[in-house]
Design a protein around this nucleic acid. Sequence first.
DNA 1: TAAGTTTATAATGTATACTGTTTGAGTTCG
DNA 2: CGAACTCAAACAGTATACATTATAAACTTA
Lengths: 238, 238
Amino acid sequence: MTETIELKRVGDGNLRAQVYQQIRLTIQHGELAPGQKLVDVDIAAQLGISRMPVRDALMQLVHEGYLVGTTRGFTLPTLTATDVADIFEVRRLLEPRAAAHAARTLDAAGLKTLAAALREAEAAAAAGDADRFFQANSAFRNCWLGAVENERLSQTIARFADHVLVVRLRTLSHQPTQAVIVAGMRAIYEAFVKRDAVAAYDRMTRFIQNAEERFMKLSPPFQDSNGEGEGMSRQGKA
Amino acid sequence: MTETIELKRVGDGNLRAQVYQQIRLTIQHGELAPGQKLVDVDIAAQLGISRMPVRDALMQLVHEGYLVGTTRGFTLPTLTATDVADIFEVRRLLEPRAAAHAARTLDAAGLKTLAAALREAEAAAAAGDADRFFQANSAFRNCWLGAVENERLSQTIARFADHVLVVRLRTLSHQPTQAVIVAGMRAIYEAFVKRDAVAAYDRMTRFIQNAEERFMKLSPPFQDSNGEGEGMSRQGKA
DNA sequence: TAAGTTTATAATGTATACTGTTTGAGTTCG
DNA sequence: CGAACTCAAACAGTATACATTATAAACTTA
């Protein structure tokens, strides 16, 4: 058991930051089984370092909502329908405004990156490649979010988006949903190209609404046909 | 030399949580000099525990934006004008909606608490007691925020509000500002009493705008690039 | 005297060891 | 056959010791 997730140190600064980055990327890429537990001593042994930096990184991820810390190892949170609704409410409040910012501040290079991500998403949707679609989606979002000059705004958005992203990989394999999302991305992209902040605001609003609607309709944990018997355990909040 | 801040352990759970709570309260109460540095080993010695729980608490506070961690001790962040503007932008997006929520969900006990905090704020303003005014303000905010059923929303708001609160103690000694704030609190309170979500939304919007305006106008460190230069700042009273 | 360089120190970063608590399996008793 | 108790393993919490690094002070030199 315990197929150890592959982790390698990325050259940034101190060990804690490296480990944090690695684990977060692992989570964002969906390379972590829902019930899998992350144990500091195991990860430390795999990386050839001590427990402490790993423990620090795990606790930071807990504070940011990426993980939950139980008495028996760290693991992914299982979001309830209420959790997802709460997250989407915050996103609805923040992302349209941020998109309006990006419409003003995106430069040519950013627009080019967005165009590439959009094409990639379309190609992935056409090919039915959910994982590739997922990646293109993240690239698109990270790009325009990076152009937002209010760092606290963009970081808050990124965090909340990541939280639902954890569970989202499964819903993104639904092809009609992919079509809806691609259409929304294109609409937003065109608003960016025109530097139309109002259009960006409105289209992002619609985009989030659509995303939430699709999400709630398709998410397996909430109307589960899969006999995993997971239940709706409310885990650590705070 | 550096007068050590008084810290005592509060009986919650593990040591890290206790220390975290204590330091956060110390920050929120403004009992921390702007340049004062928090050193884990000192606090640990004062509490009679080891470095690690203190270090964990300090790092958590850094992750949440309450502190900044340098290589030479943890200290309060010095917010630039841009920082403050960014924080207020996020608050403008979140708090009106949260107030609308609270207008629906506040119960009689909550309204009573709000009324008491409001009276306290008025009394403090009349007496010119900035510290008491500050406390009443926090009590008011914590009360209605506690009624918001979206935990992530309320926690995000609380965090960002705390960030500017750190610097705000100075501006709150300005009596005309106190009058403006009290008027805003009363307007919001009345919307809560009437359970009028729309009015709560609108009045909270105005309240935040006023708060930001006053904040930027009065804060000494920020008079850099933004040449305001209008004659409405009645600074002569005090 | 002022600027640049060195050194000392104070603080965090990291490692290892120990403790306490929870969990789950195995066993015994009803 | 099932429920409760015991015990051992596993993992987070805490403590102490060592390493590293950046800052500030001291010192040298032009």
